[in-house]
Structure formats: structure tokens, C-alpha cells
Simulated scan of single mutants.
Amino acid sequence: MNEQNSKSKIPDSDYHVPVLYRETLSGLAIQPDGVYVDCTFGGGGHSRGILEQLNSKGKLIAFDQDADAQKNLPEDDRVIFVPQNFRHLQRMLRLHKITEVDGILADLGVSSHQFDEGERGFSIRFSGPLDMRMDRRQGATAADIIRTYSETQLHKLFEQYGEVTNSKTLAKHIVQERKHLQSSTIEQFKALISPVVKGNPNKYLAQVFQALRIEVNDEMGALKDMLQQVPAVLKPGGRVAIITFHSIEDRVVKNFFRQGSFDETPDNPFMPSTKENVFDIITKKPVTASEEELKRNTRSRSAKLRVARKV
């Protein structure tokens, strides 16, 4: 970590506190005249850190599909804001006549602002609509999924995206009870599933809500789409830094950095890989929050940062 990054102050924001701030900026090894992409602008914390290290020739392209994020844009000619999902990375860069960049950042966590706005439907703490759309221009809400998905579809998403222990029972219960019980609000949905909640109710509901949020926003599909475009848009020597918040995302990023695919392939010393790796992995193990950051921001507990450099 260079001296400049280690001393940089973490931005305070009511909208979102950036996690692994210094570690991420250090991992990107920012070039003053470089072109950088923040795929998840949010409160703009990481972006401000990048801008501080860019000179007048540098440029930052900030993506965010959530309209609320635009309120946090700095008045800075070096910033291009793209109000789109980062899965459209390469197309949007081409639209702005940018073919290659020096670095790409994605912080995949839901912003504090989204969690704290009851009407967005992301948090079990509020009694707003069961929505969970990051881009409110898109169609299906979490309530739509609960109302229309088959038992098999619900079982799969709760098992894969939420690692819910009794996902099969939960799916069956929802399909049986939704015929005569409403589930258009958070409170209604919690009441609907209360008979099958297992263990710590808060932890259980958090897992269920996580699974629904990932499905509503097609987060895994978007992540894979974006990662597949990274080798084409990143300059040789350029870096990509991804912050994940659950094991499913982290596994996808780890596998893509290691072998350029999303499949788990066991290490076999007798079968050397013939595939040329696009990336040199900078973080041999994921970087996690320090004790100091954990005390300051409890939401950083599950954050993992992985950084790779294009060969």
C-alpha cells in the first residue's frame, strides 16, 4: 500500500460508507492520467478517492442503475455518469468513445441508503412494499416473484442465493399459502412465512431477503456479464478490483480471475492447464476489513476484496 493511500481519509456519507476504502484504492494502483470505471457509484465514496489521485487528464466513468445515486455526483468535468447497470459496460464505454481503461472497480454490496429507505423494500426493519428493485425502471418486484414463481423456482433461488436451510419447505409453504394471503408488503410477507422460520428469525429473514434481492436484480447474471467484458476493456497492466458480500459472488469472481470461467475446477498437478490466463492475481487471498473498520462499520464484516491485473 502506498503512502498516499494509507493516509487518505475515508469519506463520511449518510448515503453509504465505502468498505475497504484504502485497500481498494491501493489495489487499483491508480495512474494520475488514467481512465477508471466505478461500476457501482452509489454514494461516490470510492469514486472520490479515485478522483483525488487523478490529474486533469484523468477520467472517471461512474455507473449506477439507481436513480438516487445521481444526487451524489460531484461537479467535476472528469466524471462521466452512466445511469445503467454495469452489465452494459463495454457498450456504454464505446458510446462515450472509450475503448480501453486503466482500472475497474465494483462494490457489489447494497448501499446503506437502499437498506435505510423503507419504501425500497430491501430491509426487514421496515414495513414498506416488497420491492427490492435497484433500478425502479425495470419490471418485476420481489412481491411479483413471491406471487408468480413455481415451487421449484422458489426452492432453487432460496437454496442457491440465500443458503436457506429449509428452502424446500419454505417454497412449498409460500405456494400453498399465497392463494389466500397477501404478500405485497414486507410485513405481509413476514407474516406469510412466519410458520416456517427456523433458528434466529433475523438471520433467517436476512437470508430470504438476500435471495429475493439477487433474483429481482439478476445480480449473478449482471456480475458474470460484466466480468466477461473486463479482459476486452482493460489495458494490459490495468487492474480490476471487486468487493463481494457473500460466498456465491466471491466464488464467481475468484474462479473468473483464476481461469477466465465461472466453473469450479479442482487443482490437479497431473493435468497442467493449457489455457493461458488473462489475469495475474494480486490478492492471493481475499482482503477483509480490519478490526478498526469492523468497529466503525459493521456492514463491512462480510466484505471481501479481490484484485487482479491484466497480463
Rank of each mutant, 00 (worst) to 15 (best):
F126E: 06
F126H: 15
F126I: 02
F126N: 06
S127N: 15
S127I: 01
S127G: 12
S127Q: 13
S127L: 01
S127W: 00
G128Q: 03
P129T: 07
D131F: 00
D131Q: 01
M132V: 10
M132L: 08
R133N: 09
R133P: 08
M134C: 05
M134G: 07
M134K: 05
D135T: 04
D135L: 02
D135I: 04
R137L: 12
G139D: 13
G139Q: 13
G139H: 11
A140D: 09
A140C: 02
T141Q: 07
A142E: 08
A143Y: 02
A143G: 08
D144K: 05
I145D: 07
T148E: 14
T148C: 01
Y149R: 12
S150Y: 06
E151V: 10
E151G: 05
E151H: 04
T152N: 10
Q153A: 15
L154N: 09
H155W: 12
F158K: 09
F158P: 01
F158S: 07
E159K: 15
Q160L: 13
Y161G: 03
Y161M: 09
G162W: 08
E163A: 11
E163I: 11
V164S: 06
V164D: 06
T165Y: 06
T165A: 10
N166R: 06
N166V: 06
S167D: 04
K168A: 13
K168T: 03
T169C: 05
T169G: 02
L170I: 01
L170V: 02
L170A: 05
L170M: 11
A171K: 08
A171V: 06
A171P: 11
H173G: 01
Q176E: 15
E177T: 14
E177C: 12
E177F: 03
R178C: 09
H180T: 15
H180R: 08
H180V: 10
L181E: 08
Q182L: 09
Q182N: 12
S184D: 13
T185S: 15
I186Y: 02
E187N: 14
Q188L: 04
Q188I: 01
F189Y: 15
F189E: 06
K190L: 14
K190F: 02
K190P: 00
K190R: 14
L192T: 06
L192P: 04
I193T: 04
P195C: 07
V196A: 08
V196R: 10
V197W: 00
V197D: 01
K198S: 11
K198C: 06
K198T: 13
G199K: 05
G199F: 05
N200D: 15
P201L: 02
P201Y: 01
K203Y: 04
K203H: 12
K203W: 00
Y204F: 15
A206L: 11
A206S: 15
A206F: 10
Q207H: 13
